[in-house]
């Protein structure tokens, strides 16, 4: 019985059945990451249409669900990247980017982290927070933004990210370190604190 099931899962079914079979799953996957109903619907739509176009290249090596999810992930990254482009022209304070800039020569904090006052549950629900996040992501280079989106928003393993971006794990860790350092500072500046509370050394 199991055998029959796995074969039927691997062999492509009629695309007419895709929406019924995988629509809810893909939508759910998208919504918990994108947190915007209209955007999530669009992304799922684009995914199915893209799948339709590349259907002939699908070899049945992975299950149909895995294959569709793979396309979906790309679409979600694209979504965040496009948001990023939209936000590019916003007036933003320039922030120091290299993690080294945060420390003095002895490796001590120069730009010290400030205490964040936030209720995580509330933040998740706030649309404005997502906007600030988009703005902050927009200031990262494409490489840093892609790595961060794949790791923290999609939830991909570093191994997978290395494959996608064609980089070594060490390289990936450095990129993620820089992206996190920058984003935490950006969120701190634009969302979490009043600069006057900042202690400077």
């Amino acid at each position: 019985m199991n055998n029959i099931r796995s074969i039927s899962e691997k062999s492509p079914v009629n695309p007419d059945k895709w929406v019924g079979r995988y629509g809810d799953y893909l939508y759910r996957y998208t919504l918990v990451r994108v947190r915007d109903v209209a955007a999530a619907e669009d992304i799922v739509q684009e995914t199915f249409l893209a799948a339709l176009n590349s259907y002939k290249n699908y070899q049945g090596r992975s299950s149909e669900k895995t294959w569709l999810t793979g396309i979906l992930k790309h679409k979600i990254v694209d979504y965040f990247r496009n948001k990023t482009k939209e936000a590019l022209y916003h007036d933003t304070n320039t922030l120091s980017f290299a993690p080294e800039d945060f420390f003095n020569r002895k490796g001590q904090w120069k730009i010290r982290p400030v205490k964040w006052n936030a209720d995580p549950q509330k933040l998740i629900e706030q649309q404005e927070f997502m906007k600030v996040l988009h703005d902050c992501l927009s200031q990262l280079s494409q490489r840093h933004a892609n790595a961060f989106i794949l790791r923290e928003i999609i939830g991909e393993k570093v191994k997978e990210i290395c494959k996608t971006l064609d980089i070594t794990p060490t390289n990936c860790w450095v990129i993620l370190y820089r992206a996190r350092m920058y984003l935490r500072r950006c969120l701190e500046k634009s969302w979490f604190t009043d600069e006057t509370y900042e202690e400077t050394s």
């Binding site: 929406v19 629509g23 809810d24 939508y27 759910r28 919504l31 918990v32 990451r33 947190r35 619907e41 799922v44 982290p113 964040w116 936030a118 995580p120 933040l123 998740i124 927070f129 996040l133 923290e152 928003i153 999609i154 939830g155 996190r180 984003l183 935490r184 969120l187 701190e188």
Partner: peptide, 27 residues
């Protein structure tokens, strides 16, 4: 710094509620 990274992961990462709530999300 560490608390901030952990908080970022918590609020930016996929927002998973209870399984039942999640399954009720439908296109």
């Amino acid at each position: 710094y560490r608390d901030q990274l952990l908080l970022m992961r918590k609020i930016i990462g996929p927002k998973m509620d209870k399984k039942e709530t999640n399954l009720s999300i439908k296109l």
